[in-house]
Write a protein that binds this DNA or RNA. Structure first.
Lengths: 125, 125
DNA sequence: CCCGATTGTTTACATTTGTAAATAACTACG
DNA sequence: CGTAGTTATTTACAAATGTAAACAATCGGG
């Protein structure tokens, strides 16, 4: 159980809402997700269930409502899945990965500056 | 069929070998993959089969051997899967994604310089 | 206190994925 | 020309995933 659970793409959507607003009731998660997905409430509840079973979410009951919280840190989870992605798609090479995303996106002047600074700090270290 | 096929993580390993050395015989793909995976030849052949069926690979037979080639461009495929990843894991925000990878990796001075230049070009455009 | 609405639990089902063995087809050596 | 050894095709099967309906428990309003 020390194992970080595998989180599927659909489940990521759910986790993102929880990380953002926890503790949060199922009804609110459903509302949030229905804005940009086609999922029915039943479907979203299935995801919640599975995530609890996987150990990615936990909850506290208040009457018949559950308030969900994440059981795994977002940062840890991001690290894990990012490593897999990097490995599968870019053969483990970060340089090309970053290059790809820099080129394929419109970055604001501000973001560019931020990244520039990140690189600078990286360099001197 | 104009649809870009979905490629699973295991299949990505196969595709990477093909993109690198195409046209390439199954036996060579198997050899290449056995270096860092535990897959048996039968398993790898299953992946090849599925990839052909999905339209991600095609082949030319030479006697009883097949020589495989990709049927989809690596760049296109990377774009597609990268978009999904960006969306799922970073809510579509490239800035944080790049920041994550910059921080979580050891970049060589050279790579840092490359990226710096990429950003510069990005800025003035 | 009963009943409709809400919330959670169970069950369902097709598809995809990882993993591979069984079988068929073919080729090349003896 | 038959047969051992490749190669490819078919079949297998459990687990995960996307998608949701059916069912059960409970809560709140009348």
């Amino acid at each position: 159980m020390a194992e970080l659970p595998e989180i599927s793409p659909a489940e990521w959507q759910v986790m993102n809402v929880v990380w953002e607003r926890q503790p949060v009731a199922a009804s609110d998660i459903i509302k949030a997700l229905q804005v940009d997905s086609e999922w029915t409430p039943a479907t979203i509840r299935t995801f919640l269930h599975r995530l609890v079973k996987k150990g990615a979410l936990k909850y506290v009951a208040d009457g018949n409502r559950y308030f969900y919280r994440s059981a795994v840190a977002k940062s840890t989870t991001i690290k894990k899945v990012s490593r897999s992605f990097l490995q599968s798609v870019f053969g483990g090479e970060t340089g090309p990965l970053i290059a790809h995303f820099v080129q394929s996106t419109n970055l604001s002047a501000d973001e560019i500056e931020q990244l520039r600074q990140l690189l600078e700090r990286k360099e001197t270290k």
